[in-house]
Design a protein around this nucleic acid. Structure first.
Length: 106
DNA sequence: GAATTGACGCGGC
DNA sequence: GGCCGCGCCAATT
């Protein structure tokens, strides 16, 4: 785990997401060199903790919503709060306006 | 070394 | 327009 693997590659991409912006699993996977492997991104972030230097909270699913509700009940509320603190807004459906906050590499 | 799981994506109904 | 099931690769045990 110490050696750079596929996971490390994904972490590097997530670290590049600037505050106030979000990216989808598919995007992160593609940027990490793993197009179509959104599950790997989820698996990699799952191994992270809130103490990690990786802003995993800025990574959301393609629907623009938080996926934690599936594995960590109530955890999505925690993530939502973090994003709102960065300037990311949610709609009535607890979804992020991807059209506005979706981060793209420059 | 092999089997199972996993923060998802997309197609189909 | 929303809900269900299948499939991809890597990491973990």
């Amino acid at each position: 785990m110490e050696l750079p693997g596929k996971h490390q590659r994904i972490y590097a991409i997530v670290r590049q997401i600037p505050p106030g912006h979000v990216a989808t699993y598919g995007d992160v996977a593609a940027l990490a060199g793993l197009p179509g492997h959104a599950r790997l991104v989820g698996y990699a972030l799952h191994a992270l903790t809130e103490f990690s230097d990786v802003p995993w909270q800025r990574v959301i699913n393609a629907r623009g919503a938080i996926s934690l509700g599936r594995a960590y009940p109530g955890g999505e509320l925690h993530q939502r709060r973090l994003l709102e603190a960065e300037g990311v807004e949610f709609d009535a459906n607890a979804k992020i306006n991807l059209k506005r906050f979706r981060w793209r590499p420059v």
